[in-house]
């Protein structure tokens, strides 16, 4: 079935714990699917060639560029976006708290990508050095903050997460 080449496909994905089924064009980028088919506009698009990192989401827990995947490729997978980060409406994820506390964002456009890449990174490196944090976010461009407070926020978030 899947060996038959088609221009459209029906896909099923789980995003932030909720299942979705949609028929999509094969060429539809995952970023466009999340934003404009599912209305999850927290994932931003900055370059559509995989450099800026604003569209970073977690695919089965690992950070990927959603502009460098087709929605059809996500069929059967789990995706997490910034909308799924906070545990509930009233509470922020430690990363979100840390970014707020340390002034880790200005225009907020790169922020969701930063948060998602850091979520995956801190899960694997709970006590990173500054250099390791900088390396981890080096695939995410920020034009506002000069990164310093993002690095501070990441360190603080690591601390909060370790305390949990």
């Amino acid at each position: 079935m899947n060996t038959i080449a088609t221009e459209r496909r029906v896909i099923r994905v789980v995003v932030n714990g909720s299942p979705y089924e949609r028929e999509v064009e094969a060429r539809l980028l995952l970023s466009d699917f999340l934003r404009h088919e599912l209305g999850l506009t927290g994932t931003h698009v900055g370059c559509e060639h995989g450099v800026c990192g604003a569209c970073t989401v977690l695919l089965d827990g690992e950070p990927v560029r959603s502009c460098l995947m087709f929605a059809v490729q996500a069929d059967g997978h789990e995706i997490e976006t910034v909308e799924g980060l906070a545990p509930n409406e009233a509470e922020l994820h430690p990363l979100q708290r840390a970014f707020w506390e340390k002034h880790g964002l200005q225009c907020g456009y790169c922020t969701p990508g930063m948060l998602m890449v850091l979520k995956a990174f801190l899960a694997e490196n709970p006590d990173p050095s500054e250099e390791e944090i900088r390396e981890a976010i080096s695939g995410n461009l920020c034009r506002c903050t000069g990164y310093q407070n993002i690095v501070e926020a990441a360190r603080y978030a690591a601390q909060l997460l370790r305390q949990r």
Binding site: T41, G42, V45, F99, G108, P112
Partner: peptide, 21 residues
């Protein structure tokens, strides 16, 4: 003082022009 803008932007509830359909 921590920014009033941030909770929305941190939770993906920002509203940039392309977010509006």
């Amino acid at each position: 003082i921590k920014r009033a803008e941030d909770p929305r932007l941190l939770t993906g509830r920002g509203r940039y022009v392309d977010d509006i359909d």
